[in-house]
């Protein structure tokens, strides 16, 4: 079997499996998996920048929150239909990413990381500052009546699961197409040795800018979908924690693998879910996982699989 076919079989199999689970899962895990698929789409977006381009951002919560509020604010305050609101959310995140990339990409390494962190922090504080419109930390609930897309009521569990699956499938396939296209291959080359890629005549700055816009747009799409599917928008989604979580998911699942973000999100979601039954200090798990991963498995789960078993894993 050719490698290309194996790749299609693995990722197609994952999506088919998730579709099959829709019919068999009990209600609690059914709801969880819908949430995991939306968050995994966010992680896929983060992975485009971190895993494939090698740029560590600590400010992706900004794009996630931009998508969420870009969708929720016009929907809630202006009564924009859900379909258009999703587009304004996507546009807000992608536009913000395009703008910030111009500034942030003037720096590299540690400075890039701090610049993205500071911009996200400023964004989070801005959400809090305009508390009258955004309802700050408390957030606001989106009416079930407004969560209707093309006549489908997204507040119903079945429709919600399938919508989440559709979003995840779109993100996964977009990422797969990206890394198999020349543009994506150039991004990987930039990650490995930017100087050499530049010497070969590629415009590395333009490529990194493109990666950040794609990454921001995917994150914003996940944010907008999260707000619409679960009917809530709050400032917490713009906090530092939501910048660190996708990093954790991607590191755990395997940075620079298409399937890794989903695996990482799935594992970490259930790990935190189980430990929050035991203690209120559930973020302890995240802290220990971050340290252990950087120390012992910097490749992540899918990265280890690629290293030991399946060399063809994209």
């Amino acid at each position: 079997m050719s490698d290309g076919r194996k790749v299609l079989l693995l990722h197609g199999g994952l999506l088919a499996g998730l579709f099959a689970l829709h019919f068999v899962l009990p209600a609690y895990h059914h709801g969880n998996l819908a949430r995991i698929m939306v968050l995994a789409s966010y992680a896929v977006g983060y992975n485009v920048l971190f895993g494939y381009t090698g740029l560590l951002s600590l400010g992706h919560a900004l794009f996630f929150a931009a998508g969420m509020y870009g969708m929720a604010l016009p929907l809630h305050h202006l009564g924009l239909p859900a379909g258009w609101a999703l587009l304004t959310g996507l546009g807000a995140g992608a536009g913000l990413a395009a703008l910030l990339a111009l500034l942030a990409l003037r720096t590299t390494g540690v400075a890039f990381l701090i610049v993205t962190l500071m911009f996200a922090q400023a964004g989070h504080l801005t959400i809090l500052y305009f508390g009258e419109v955004t309802r700050g930390d408390e957030g606001f609930v989106i009416d079930a009546a407004q969560r209707v897309l093309w006549g489908i009521d997204l507040s119903a569990p079945d429709a919600r699961y399938l919508a989440a699956l559709a979003l995840f499938a779109a993100s996964l396939l977009a990422c797969l197409a990206l890394v198999r296209a020349p543009f994506g291959k150039t991004l990987i080359a930039v990650r490995e040795n930017e100087e050499r890629v530049r010497m070969l005549g590629y415009d590395t700055h333009l490529h990194k800018w493109g990666a950040m816009v794609i990454s921001g747009a995917l994150s914003a799409a996940a944010g907008a979908a999260y707000g619409l599917l679960f009917g809530y928008a709050g400032a917490t989604f713009g906090s530092v924690q939501y910048s660190i979580l996708p990093l954790l998911w991607v590191l755990l699942g395997g940075a620079g693998t298409v399937i890794g973000p989903f695996i990482g999100t799935l594992f970490m979601f259930y790990l935190i879910d189980l430990s929050s039954d035991l203690t209120t200090a559930y973020m302890l798990v995240a802290g220990v996982a971050l340290i252990a991963l950087t120390l012992f498995a910097p490749q992540g789960l899918a990265g280890e699989v690629r290293r030991r078993l399946w060399r063809w894993l994209p």
């Binding site: 560590l56 990093l247 200090a281 973020m283 302890l284 995240a286 802290g287 971050l290 950087t294």
Partner: peptide
């Protein structure tokens, strides 16, 4: 940096 983020959560949560 990733490790010290982990350390942050460990110290805070403990």
């Amino acid at each position: 940096i990733v490790a010290t983020i982990g350390l942050l959560y460990v110290i805070q949560q403990v």
